[in-house]
């Protein structure tokens, strides 16, 4: 395990050092971005809409019962932008994009394509890891911005149509605007960025160390996704704790 952590940190550092060369790899970054956006935007919107809705359903009736109807918009708005938006999107992307990255790089490792790159003295970090990590670091925060807005909308719809809550769109969003500040959304985006780097590095690393045939690729994909999600949930606590030091 410690060896894996060491390798992950090393890969992250090498990727960071390769950042000045990202412009050279811009075509690959755009390709990856297009694939990630294409694969995830619609699903992200659907998931966020329903997460917003369910959070409102879970909290709305209790708050309304206690005469705190005016707090529903703020509570839903905050929980989505600070926590649920970034974490749920990161988990979704780890499954959707992380698995694809691990499978693609894993199959390149198994079918000697990575060996071929090495014999041509082409940097694996620059050619394979950098474009994917950069693309996912742009894509996930962007998706989280969408997810937050759609999540709020989902919350507002549920608050409006559920008879136990029955809060109008206007009062939902008025309360949301009073409570949620731009800084809260920025914190969500920062979290998303950290999670994106984790997903990119973990899945690339797992792909690169794939051995065996198709079964090895399957094992790598599973490990890449599970490890990414576990790391995201652990890091979530620490990133939240650090961000608490910065007042919105």
């Amino acid at each position: 395990m410690f060896r894996d952590i060491g390798q992950l940190v090393l890969l992250a550092w090498q990727t960071f050092l390769a950042l000045p060369q990202v412009w050279r790899q811009r075509r690959k970054v755009f390709e990856q971005l297009f694939e990630m956006g294409n694969a995830s935007l619609f699903v992200a919107c659907i998931v966020s809409l329903f997460i917003g809705g369910v959070i409102t359903l879970q909290t709305g009736p209790t708050l309304v019962e206690r005469g705190l109807a005016s707090a529903v918009g703020g509570l839903v708005g905050l929980s989505i932008c600070r926590e649920l938006g970034p974490v749920m999107m990161a988990i979704l992307i780890a499954g959707r994009i992380g698995s694809a990255i691990a499978a693609e790089i894993g199959s390149m490792a198994v079918y000697q394509e990575i060996d071929a790159l090495r014999t041509m003295n082409i940097s694996i970090v620059r050619y394979l890891v950098l474009p994917r990590v950069v693309a996912i670091s742009i894509a996930l925060p962007a998706l989280v911005v969408f997810a937050i807005m759609v999540g709020w909308l989902g919350g507002a719809i549920a608050a409006n149509y559920n008879t136990q809550i029955a809060i109008s769109y206007q009062s939902f969003f008025t309360n949301l605007r009073q409570v949620v500040e731009v800084g809260d959304v920025v914190k969500g985006i920062i979290k998303a960025f950290v999670f994106a780097v984790v997903i990119g590095i973990v899945t690339c690393h797992q792909g690169l160390k794939t051995i065996g045939g198709p079964r090895g690729i399957g094992r790598s994909v599973t490990k890449a996704v599970v490890n990414s999600i576990v790391l995201i949930l652990i890091l979530d606590y620490f990133v939240t704790r650090i961000l608490m030091e910065f007042k919105s």
Binding site: R24, E104, M108, Y111, Q112, E113, D115, A116, L117, T119, M120, N121, I122, Y127
Partner: peptide, 28 residues
């Protein structure tokens, strides 16, 4: 140095032309 692998080990995501020119492209 170059190696011709048993399977060829061409990059499947690239065309034949891109594969053949990869060394020159990547090393500019």
């Amino acid at each position: 140095m170059a190696m011709v692998f048993q399977s060829g080990a061409l990059l499947n995501s690239l065309t034949v032309g891109e594969n053949v020119g990869l060394y020159l492209t990547e090393h500019r």
